[in-house]
Design a protein around this nucleic acid. Sequence first.
DNA 1: TCAATAGTGTCTATGAGACAGTATGGT
DNA 2: ACCATACTGTCTCATAGACACTATTGA
Lengths: 229, 229
Amino acid sequence: MSKYDGTAPVAVTVDLVIFTLRRSALHLLLIERGKGPFLGELALPGGFVRDDEDLRQAALRELGEETGVDGTRLHLEQLRTFGTPGRDPRVRTFTVAYLALGPDLPNPVAGTDAAHARWMPVQDALTCGLAFDHAAILQEGLHRARAKLEYTTVAAAFCQEPFTLAELRHVYEVVWDLDLDPSNFRRKVLKADDFVIPTGEYRAPEVGRPAELYRRGRAEMLFPPMVRA
Amino acid sequence: MSKYDGTAPVAVTVDLVIFTLRRSALHLLLIERGKGPFLGELALPGGFVRDDEDLRQAALRELGEETGVDGTRLHLEQLRTFGTPGRDPRVRTFTVAYLALGPDLPNPVAGTDAAHARWMPVQDALTCGLAFDHAAILQEGLHRARAKLEYTTVAAAFCQEPFTLAELRHVYEVVWDLDLDPSNFRRKVLKADDFVIPTGEYRAPEVGRPAELYRRGRAEMLFPPMVRA
DNA sequence: TCAATAGTGTCTATGAGACAGTATGGT
DNA sequence: ACCATACTGTCTCATAGACACTATTGA
């Protein structure tokens, strides 16, 4: 007989889909499992939610432990909860997946929890085989990130401040894997209310005319939305 | 010391934000709690996830038990998981919130689990005080439903097939609480690919010219999106 | 015939795509 | 001078909002 009262042994974890932009490609943080099932395989960083923690707190803590980065400065949102029976062979486990986006994040530091973590291009991660149902979680995270660029301002979360409009455009081009017209992109971004704020400063690229630098504006929604061809 | 291994006693539930359109107002299904904490107060329908159940299965089962409706014909999507410590005074409880949308659903049947369930206008539900953190869950469900009308075809989930374009427009007007130009609305819906499919049949209203009847098309996304003023 | 709702057509403003042309730096 | 990139301006097309107009029913 099934248990109806929630007293059956269950575990609750958070798993993180952490994206960053490195060397013109979208990268994902993966860890190599050091114990338990799927030992030695690649997996999303994550862990058990503690007794006294909120879900978001748990995600922020794992983010810090795995990347060494102060997660409070990253974009972090809940993705979806996965709980299909058998997804963890040990015990019924529900995992609350989070999506984190950040500018070119540092390499994991040796000698910490993050020692077994590394960045991998998302295209590779999609096909290399991940532990548990993490491939499905990654798929969903990628889909969410792509969709959110359209109608929100999260693209700026991938940029280190201050940034140029070319860098911001580059985010769209990499995540969507297409080219955008620089002229039309500029017009759209500058017309949108409070997407970016000009600093009046300029930065010279390796070659070509210096570009003006911007910071993130307060707007979270982008209207009208950016459209994918 | 906190437990790190997920063996602390925790419960996992699903809670449902079920919206339907009745008498020109958006309604929410609420139950009166018959036991436990918050006894006698209003709450979202929901319950424990069983050992052998997927999360979506659990949501569908609760939906059937609470409304007597075959949930497989309703729109059902996961909203977010809530797990703040203390949200349930008995035991650490994580609840996976689901959003369900359906056409004018029947009244809960006496003599079943649904006996203590009833429909309430959303405007009232927002202010009447709900058990646990259900007010926050409702808020999020309402926000999600409103947002999804913009760029998906879920509005049709509120319509009993076959339906007229006026009925579909009415969904937008009620959920968004504004008026839409019938002419422009028709143009937009018919131009969108596979949003609705004409049946060739007509239905006469109480007064006025009969309107053509439509069925839901296969499209899930709406492009270009419907815009709120 | 009238009221009420369904459906068509049209004018205008706005925003997007395409792309020409100008500005400003480094070599 | 030349190249590469930043930035500006313009033409055209598609779509949305406003709204006038026609069509079809019941009373």
